[in-house]
Computed example of a mutant assay.
Amino acid sequence: MCHVFLYPSPVHLQGKTSEDLTIEFKEIARISKKDKAELILDCVQNDGNTLREYQESRDFITTSLVRDLEHQKEELAGLDKEIEKILLSFDYKLTSMPGIGTSIASKLIAEIGDIRRFHNADKLARFAGVAPVKFSSAGKGKEQSSRQGNRQLHGLFYFLAVTMVSKPKNGIPNHPVFYDYYMRKIGEGKTKSQALVCIMRRLVNIVYGMMKNKTEYREPIREEEQ
């Protein structure tokens, strides 16, 4: 048996078509599909009488929660606008880079601070704990990311690295240049974790250059195009 919690009761769905429901869903999530709306309407129809005891109270509680969520959504939208104003005052153009939105850009700036205190990208990489550190075992050396440094900043670069090399369901990498670089490192014998460190290090270089020179993101050239 299907259960629908998106509306207080099936009464609110009476007379609605799958097209109507899909439009409403897209106000919440852009990727909503018509087949999901059709499934919900089908479930409501097959469930028959789904009214429960104290239905009016249940409806009131549900609509109250919805209003509260809508208010929070408006508050977050207002916060984003204020953050965008602050970002403009810094004149950094980090959001021009795919994968970096207002939230990530503001966190990067907050953790890095004045970019001028880092003489080069290597200094920033060490500060973020991204600079690879060599370990030796039984005569064999391997590289791992340092566990020292700013862990919040390290986490931001890790999140960005994973985003860059991820492949959605359509099979197309989010960022082909970084994905190719990632796969090349794995082909050279590095583990996935070590390859991600390489991506993080490259991202540090890019972010450092963008902040240092206050420039927009420029797509790296793929090796076969060089």
Rank of each mutant, 00 (worst) to 15 (best):
M1Q: 10
C2K: 14
F5Q: 15
L6A: 13
V11K: 14
T17V: 09
D20H: 07
T22A: 11
I31Y: 12
I31F: 13
I31L: 09
E38G: 08
Q45M: 05
T50K: 13
R52P: 14
R52D: 12
R58I: 13
T63G: 03
T63V: 09
S64E: 14
S64F: 15
L69Q: 14
Q72K: 15
E84D: 02
P98E: 04
T102F: 00
A105S: 07
S106C: 01
L108D: 03
L108H: 01
A110K: 00
A110G: 04
I112P: 05
I115M: 08
R117I: 14
F118W: 14
H119S: 14
S137L: 05
G139C: 04
K140T: 03
Q144M: 05
R147V: 06
R147K: 11
Q148N: 10
Q152W: 03
H154D: 05
G155L: 06
L160N: 03
A161L: 07
N170C: 11
N174K: 04
K185Y: 10
K185F: 08
T191I: 04
A195R: 08
C198P: 06
R201Q: 15
L203R: 07
V207D: 01
M210S: 01
M211C: 03
N213V: 06
N213E: 14
K214D: 07
T215N: 00
T215D: 00
E216F: 01
I221P: 05
R222P: 11
Q226L: 15
Q226S: 13
